[in-house]
């Protein structure tokens, strides 16, 4: 249960090796935190996070294997975690950027991206929503992207999955409105992480910890949608209203 000062006791990270999600965990207030579940495919990053958070004095940090694409396993997976105790905050942070050019040439690769980023998220998102509803409280943070605001030539396959995810998360938030369960949709711009390493930096590129701070602040204020950094809201409003003939010719 979150306390009156917004201190959570338990957090579930779906995509538990995601840099942005782990930065969010680091930014959360810790005075009452006693359970963190990092759900991800086995990885060195996931194991390191468990070791680090435990060393920092959080008592119940565990890692569990989770594959967003095996949707048939999601029901049992989520039930086991929630049966062990209420979860105050769920971070839905998994996702792959994929290789746009390769995916254009091989639709099977595009399906993989869509399955992870959209289908997998819809499946686990609904299972999480069901359990938040049952416990009568809790927040689900969905990491969308400005790439979903308007699909661009250079990454429209990734962008379209985030557009779908974003629409799904907004609708879910509306469905849950007033139930004590709450959905926060975060739309980061380009973030310096492993995923974006080597790519040329877009304007307003930011760091994972900046996104994390915005998420934590928005959770406390009960916000429903937030851009990271905040002023991207205006940039994206401009881009969305741009005529298609012009938008198409923008660099990258």
């Amino acid at each position: 249960m979150n306390d009156a000062l917004g201190e959570p006791q338990s957090v579930l990270v779906l995509g538990g090796s995601s840099e942005i999600a782990l930065a969010t965990v680091n930014a959360l207030p810790r005075r009452r935190l006693r359970r963190i579940v990092l759900a991800a495919r086995p990885s060195a990053a996931r194991d390191l996070a468990v070791t680090t958070l435990t060393a920092e004095g959080i008592s119940g940090v565990t890692a569990v294997d989770f594959d967003a694409r095996s949707t048939e396993s999601h029901s049992v997976f989520i039930n086991e975690i929630f049966d062990a105790g209420d979860i105050d905050i769920v971070l839905l942070a998994f996702g792959v950027l994929g290789d746009q050019e390769a995916a254009e040439a091989d639709p099977a690769l595009a399906v993989e991206i869509a399955t992870t980023n959209y289908t997998g998220a819809v499946s686990i998102g609904l299972h999480v929503a069901r359990r938040l509803r049952m416990q009568g409280h809790g927040s689900l943070v969905v990491y969308s992207s400005v790439a979903g605001d308007r699909a661009r030539r250079s990454n429209f396959i990734y962008g379209s999955t985030k557009a779908g995810l974003d629409a799904f998360a907004q609708g879910l938030g509306d469905a849950l409105h007033g139930t004590g369960a709450h959905v926060l949709v975060v739309r980061p711009g380009m973030v310096r992480t492993k995923m974006s390493a080597g790519m040329p930096e877009a304007p307003m590129t930011t760091d994972a910890n900046v996104v994390a701070d915005i998420v934590v602040k928005s959770l406390r204020r009960g916000k429903e949608t937030v851009y990271a950094p905040g002023p991207l809201r205006f940039v994206m409003a401009g881009l969305k209203s741009m005529p298609r003939s012009v938008f198409r010719k923008l660099p990258r």
């Binding site: 249960m1 009156a4 409280h137």
Partner: peptide, 19 residues
């Protein structure tokens, strides 16, 4: 997913942490 009849969002007098 949505609130059904008979369900209510409750808080204490301080109006923090509803469920």
């Amino acid at each position: 997913l949505s609130l059904t009849q008979g369900e209510k969002l409750l808080t204490g007098w301080g109006r923090t942490c509803p469920s």
